[in-house]
Design a protein around this nucleic acid. Sequence first.
RNA 1: GCCCGGGUGGCGGAAUGGUAUACGCGAGGGACUUAAAAUCCCUUGAUCGCAAGGUCAUGUGGGUUCGAUCCCCACCCCGGGCACCA
Length: 793
Amino acid sequence: MKRYDPSSIEPKWQKQWDEDGVYVARDKGKKEKKYVLIEFPYPSGEGLHMGHLRPYVAGDVMSRFLRMRGHEVMYPMGWDAFGLPAENYAIKKGIHPRVTTAKNIENAKRQVKSWGIGFDWSREVNTTDPGYYKWTQWLFLQFFKAGLAYEATGSINWCPKDKTGLANEEVIGGKCDRCGTEVVQKEVRQWYLKITEYADELIDGLKDLDWPESVKVQQENWIGRSEGALIDFQIQDTKYKIQVFTTRPDTLFGATYMVIAPEHPLLENKELRIENRGEVDAYVAKAKAKTEEERITEGKEKTGVELKGIKAVNPANGKMIPVFVADYVLGGYGTGAIMAVPAHDERDFAFAKKFGLPVIDVISGGEPGELWEGAGDLINSGKFTGMSSEEAKKAITDFVHGKMKKQYRLRDWVFSRQRYWGEPIPLIHCEKCGVVPVPDDELPVRLPEVEKYEPTGTGESPLAAIESWVNTKCPQCGGEAKRETNTMPQWAGSSWYYLRYTDPKNAKEFAAMDKMKYWLPVDMYFGGIEHTTLHLLYSRFWHLFLHDQKLVPTPEPYARRVTHGIILGPDGEKMSKSRGNVVNPDEIVKEFGADALRMYELFLGPHEAMVSWNSQGILGVSRFLDRLWNFILSGEGEGNNEEAARVVDRAVKKVTEDIENIKFNTAISSLMICLNAVEGKPAADAFKEKLLKMIAPFAPHVAEELWHETGHKNSIHLEKWPEYDEELIKEAEISVVVQVNGKYRGTITAPTGLDQKDATVLALRLQNVSAALDGKTPKKTIYIKDRLINFVA
RNA sequence: GCCCGGGUGGCGGAAUGGUAUACGCGAGGGACUUAAAAUCCCUUGAUCGCAAGGUCAUGUGGGUUCGAUCCCCACCCCGGGCACCA
């Protein structure tokens, strides 16, 4: 008998599957389609690691399972290849990013193939391919034409190391998501996509999606919708007003002062007679210069300066109240100004205490003069006194002629980068015509060759230095014009790649509608939690927009989202080179084979949980595969014993349900239980076949090899998933737990379906039970058929 | 501070109202071997007991229930997200 040797069978089958096109998905087939997706990787010089392996294997198990269940399955792969590392490497070595990217792709492809991932390579895409980014540019122009892409100069997040603007979503804890450098605020001309226009749809669409609740909540919180009112406060003896946004218009009578942000336009108004102008200007300058870090370290200690000589009028009661400038009010949210109600807002309370401002209770519920942020009935509120806060919100807003308003935390998406290795934004600046889109037939605007890749740091991209490229003709008037030199962020290409997979070679459209209609939406999207407020939010926004434009057939892109926990090193810490705890999947393949690697990774723990790699644990699955090999190839085994059939059928039921519910760890444990039970006994070929088919999604190579060794000609991965016999798996006899007062006292073995009377008789015969009852008759008996009988004495 | 997860043997974990600790790793003992590896068999939550069996254990304290790892309340700890968003 041959020995199980992964290194001799795995490459053989990988090659064979490729040649036979086992994983190629057919468009518009008769079968019901399933579209399984993983987040396509950035092809880095480091190669792919465990963090990639986990979702790819999960998606692979799922697609193989679904294919065997009779679906037309698409499981495609591609490369998100624009981005900083390749560009930084080019800066250091002078090698074009295209060259390093191609090399890295080749290596990553070798890796995923060696893991036995059944991707459909006929649909491979690469975001840096002009045939691909042509459509990224075209799609951007649809936003532009719809008025959802706009240019503005404003204070934005800027990474001083990468020398480029960043989107809000790319700033993690005040630091650049890419390099960890402290982000600063800088005034730069940028292109924005108006994602805020879709804030409501982005929230409302979530409710019908089969996504993890935590991911939905996180997106919802990021968008941060709150409902409140806009209310105007007149500035005494002037024509000017300060408008505020508040979610608590019911507390208006308690507004004892106002605060405006340091960025508020009122401070630029020279007509206002601010008596302490110098002091105010100094405060504003200092506040604006603060970095994120300084603001955090200062904590919640309130600072501010009163605008002397200025008073505002509380529209509810006509009282004159002071106006402050303070940096606890943010310029970028709401109107950049607030009414301060110290009795009912923690921050206003702290500020009022520090500056000795009056605290007036207007909502009942708290201690007098103390903070109370809850709801209650109104007090000290004129004719509204006695009303509930909920009712008063609208009533008071109406009374002061305010209007209800929804407000969001979400900011528009800073969409331009001052870097080389990205899609050029396909716009032309003409002095006469303004900003003009590049005509469709001139797309793609190709990324030109440059001498120097370095970011300039001036707010211009390196492309600005190439005059021959920048200078062009206006498509509208034919006059002298200049190209936009900013490039798109990395998130552009990934915002629509799942659409391109449905029709990757189309030269006329980004994808044909009939193909999208067949394949969309993505049925199952495997990925990490880290993209919740990045890629996942961005691509939903693109999709919602494209749906409104009638360019895609479904309202949402991803029907079901499955997230995974990260794999920690053997020491329980995050894998990192500096810590020296990185487990390299390629080395595991070399030592144990891809099948063992895949199975062990799945067996480690629940897919969504954070788990640590245990270097010795893989021996368990390695032994399992070895025993499986021997079991399948040993013995002629015609012993058609019913017990074996029952054991295997039970496994079929459990494994099927577990795969459907993404519980791969318990599915594998059921397979182990099954093998443990049948091993060493004669078993009919039919049981062996069932077992092999169940193993096939998890360990595709060994299953295929054994399938062929046992006389089959076609790939096991195109076989039908096994079924089980509902009657057979029922137990004929069952052990019923006997308890006295809820405590275990023994079991009785009886035929299934025993009624209470017979069970009682059998149970009372147990010595342990009569001892526990101590001669008493049970007051009550609880009987759950085939499970338990409990005497309450 | 607010919002999500989570806390079970030596370790990864299983079980979400009904015998807690499946499966795997590790450990101990044995078989085979000149020996070792590999493989196979047995034992393995703690504790008392010769045994039968008992008692105690799912972060802590309460509650609901015939019965709670599971449901409810309060608290502690760990991980993640947001963070002066009015």
